[in-house]
Amino acid sequence: MTVHIGAKPGEIAETVLMPGDPYRARWAAETFLEGAKLVNEVRGMLGFTGHWKGHPVTIQGSGMGMPSLSIYANELMKEYGAKTLVRIGSCGGMQEHVAIRDVIIAMTASTLTSPSSGFFREMNFAPCADWSLLRAAVAAAEARGTRTHVGGIYSSDVFYAERPDLDEQMVRHGILGVEMEAAELYTLASRHKCRALAVLTVSDHLQTGEALPAEDREKTFGDMVEIALEAAFAPE
């Protein structure tokens, strides 16, 4: 048991899916896992452990933003022995060819600042996905026929950003989408010798103004979850 995770020893699997929304964690556990058991509800940040095709899996909410994710990812890796962590979440599309409900598999995650920024001082660390997870996720998406994009994303430290100049440069440099957690997850995984990936569903679009309703954000992201699970247990 840690400060933020109330699970007992042995109740957290080595493979963890991390949605930001705790209710999405509950939906994903009830939909995709067999024998899902609630193992954490500290501060309402729900976590469940069950089995997918015989493999133990934990689905743990991370909250919004890199500081919140950093708390849960650190405790999962350092205290519970998690080895593979896959963020499953929503993002905003930034390129015209990226459509609502498309899946983005994040190869890299750029950011202005993160909780780990102080570690590097003057160095610009480049957070990137684990190659084996990335390769397996792309293969899983292609096998499903899911409309998918692979490339760089941007992890913002604010939700209500007011930097159109920054948005313009990200679009110019091919950033596919924006979210708030992946860069810190990738950095922590590198530090703790773990595997990490972000598989994201486009829920709104910065170019067109389109957006999914809240209920769809919570419950209609099945392709993303299936891709994450297939990737997590693919042969390395």
Rank of each mutant, 00 (worst) to 15 (best):
Y154V: 05
I5R: 08
I100L: 11
V202F: 05
A183R: 10
A29Y: 01
E226D: 10
G35N: 14
H173C: 07
T108Q: 11
A143G: 04
G35C: 10
G54N: 06
L69F: 14
S156A: 13
E162D: 15
E41Y: 02
Q95V: 12
Y160C: 12
A36H: 04
C194G: 00
S156R: 14
A109N: 09
G118W: 05
E181I: 12
N124Y: 06
R24Y: 01
A231I: 09
E41M: 04
A137M: 04
P19T: 07
S132D: 14
T187Y: 05
T84W: 00
G44H: 03
T58H: 05
I71D: 03
P235I: 10
G81F: 00
A137Y: 06
L197D: 02
L46K: 15
N124D: 15
E11Y: 11
K53F: 01
W52L: 06
V16Y: 02
L200S: 05
E142F: 07
L17Y: 02
P56C: 06
G10A: 06
R121Q: 07
G20R: 10
R144T: 00
R26P: 00
G222A: 13
E162P: 03
L200D: 03
I175W: 12
Q169S: 12
V16Q: 01
M18N: 01
G209I: 08
R191I: 14
T201P: 01
A231Y: 06
E230N: 14
E179I: 08
V225Y: 08
E179N: 07
K219Q: 14
T187Q: 10
G222R: 15
A126N: 10
G145M: 08
D204I: 03
R144G: 04
V150E: 02
T111S: 15
M224Y: 04
D204V: 05
A234S: 11
S190N: 13
I12G: 00
V150K: 11
R217Y: 10
L185E: 00
W131E: 07
A82E: 02
A73V: 14
Q169L: 14
R26H: 03
W27S: 03
V98N: 06
L69S: 11
P22Q: 03
A234T: 09
S203A: 11
A126C: 15
G81H: 02
Y160F: 15
L134D: 05
K193C: 02
A136R: 11
G209A: 13
F221Q: 09
I59Y: 01
G118E: 08
A189R: 06
D165N: 15
T31H: 13
S190W: 10
L33N: 09
E210R: 12
G10F: 07
V3S: 07
H4D: 00
R43Q: 08
D165F: 05
T108H: 15
A189H: 03
Y23M: 08
K8P: 00
M123S: 14
S190R: 13
G63Q: 03
A214H: 12
S203F: 06
D223R: 12
E218D: 11
P115Y: 04
G81Q: 03
A198W: 13
T84N: 06
V199P: 03
E75V: 04
T208S: 10
V171Q: 06
G35H: 11
I153T: 12
D204P: 10
S90V: 09
A196F: 02
R144K: 10
R24K: 09
R163K: 11
